[in-house]
Design a protein around this nucleic acid. Structure first.
Lengths: 319, 319
DNA sequence: TTGTAGGCGTTATCAA
DNA sequence: TTGATAACGCCTACAA
């Protein structure tokens, strides 16, 4: 396979000149440019990008860490990231971790080894401290409240979101409110749980552990929740589902379990995914696509930045 | 930043020895291994993977071309690909193309430049000929019937799937059958349309263009279809939706348009996504996750392979 | 079991 | 405007 030397020889110029033509540098005579182009054509020369990467120390590759891709939450997010990436002529390297710390570490290692220039972490298991350590090797951007660490981040104030949604239900007479969530140990989840506890305390309502449904992420989980709920002696009258998928699953299963929505059970979803619109689900809208774009932009910026994106309660038919 | 020479100096050995330790080669005295490890520790040495890539001519990066990620079809597919990739210690580079030929070409170019070792194409716009040309630069695997070209591929026989589904509806008395599809110019779509026409001819049924609904992909499209359908003088009594998402959208909107499913309109979805299970949709099950894994395995294999994956009609409540 | 040295393909510096 | 040449950091014959 032809290399830059072969081209130079054939064109009767130096490798420097070829490199200049390749990189659109000025100060090359038109005739030589033509000669080089012709030689490139004839030799079938292909630039070896690894050599360029080695020399320049950059790959134009941005890593993206996320737990899974078969959920619309991350689908929308990466769609936004991906769009911004193509605008910047960068490519994405996927690290689908399933919240496995080892796999997250792998992404961080690739940053260290310079196979990727920057890293976007959509959701994580490893500690913030580790991320801060690795940020010496390249920009790391996270999608959560990074608490003024030396990382750039974009976040949604899930404490406020939860309080807003809870108050909305309270004002409409609900006193027995539960919620569905995936894992309880994530940053966002902790904020939500705190909001829940604070809300109960403020309204002098009892804390009922049975009203919290964990491992809720997919449509199927909504059905599971409803099944569980249908066997309870004392049921919540309203539910916050931290994903529209789960809310949709609950609605779909509702007729099977003879639970009327919103009469027997009010429901608020999260994200405002298409399914929430189609199924007329009251939800807390989170602009994931734009957030994806924002995350990418931050990854490209050298300076630190912390951005809050506001969410909005969208009133529909499930409350 | 320390390099392999610094480590060698500090450890009092040659770079070869350091390289051997790095790459777990045999024939290195234990003491020297220790010395090298210590030196790596002390210098904070980090291997530069671009140098390794340059030297070895491999990147352990596999490109994945797909139009979008905010649809569960591709979500499941890439979930499978991603899982297989992590087993093989390879990473994925995403090319989200939106069916833009220019973007697909970019992926092919990266194969040429050796930034990626291999390429998986989940859905394409560029011609098969172009793919064959580029396969000189690295394995290209496609998810469709590649017609014995010199590419590896995995495919589902959509002609058969469509015929099976159509016959199933015919046997249950349906004579006015329509279908929803996204683009008509894709390989799969062409097969489906051919199956549709052949079916009509065989059963001596008229071809009614109004029964074909295009640009159907997301939940929302299902609602659109139903709206359109509700204004038609003569309606189909059954519909094939080439995505469970669309089928789900139709069901959700059905009460709004006073159309009973399956009584007024029978429905068969495709893919057997979770939503089909939850909403009890009769569907043609396509094991996308496994297919994703298969595609990756093929990409890793040097020899050509052509695999057909069979789909299966799953009887549920919408017919 | 270890080391020397050449080469992977490119870009950047400096001199001309 | 151009070219020689030294990096970039690593791997691996080949020799010892």
């Amino acid at each position: 396979m032809a290399n830059i030397i072969d081209v130079a020889k054939l064109a009767g110029v130096s490798v420097t000149t070829v490199s200049r033509v390749l990189n659109h540098h000025p100060y090359v005579k038109k005739e030589k440019v033509e000669a080089v182009k012709k030689a490139i054509e004839e030799t079938g020369y292909i630039q070896n990008i690894n050599a360029v990467n080695l020399k320049k120390g950059k790959t134009h590759l941005v890593g993206v860490v996320l737990p899974f891709l078969d959920h619309p939450y991350f689908g929308q997010l990466i769609q936004g990231i991906s769009h911004a990436a193509s605008v910047h002529h960068h490519k994405l390297v996927l690290y689908q971790t399933g919240y496995d710390k080892k796999q997250e570490m792998e992404a961080l290692e690739m940053l260290k080894l310079k196979q990727i220039d920057r890293l976007i972490i959509c959701s994580r298991s490893v500690s913030l401290d580790i991320l801060v350590d690795y940020s010496d090797f390249g920009n790391i951007v996270i999608f959560e409240n990074g608490q003024n660490t030396s990382l750039s981040y974009t976040f949604v104030d899930h404490y406020v979101c939860f309080r807003t949604a809870l108050n909305y239900l309270y004002e409409r007479g609900h006193r027995e409110i539960g919620f569905c969530i995936n894992r309880l140990d994530g940053t966002n989840s902790k904020q939500r749980e705190r909001a829940y506890r604070d809300f109960l305390k403020e309204k002098r309502l009892p804390y009922n552990e049975a009203y919290i449904f964990t491992k809720c992420l997919y449509l199927e989980d909504g059905e599971r929740v409803l099944k569980e709920l249908s066997t309870m002696q004392q049921r919540p009258t309203a539910l916050l589902a931290t994903s529209d998928q789960v809310a949709a699953g609950i609605i779909t299963a509702s007729s099977k379990y003879h639970i009327q929505i919103p009469d027997d059970l009010a429901l608020i979803g999260f994200d405002d995914q298409p399914i929430a619109h189609v199924m007329d689900i009251t939800t807390v809208g989170i602009p994931l696509y734009s957030i994806g774009q924002l995350l990418f932009e931050q990854a490209m910026t050298e300076s630190l930045s912390h951005k809050e994106v506001s969410a909005e309660l969208i009133e529909r038919g499930t409350v």
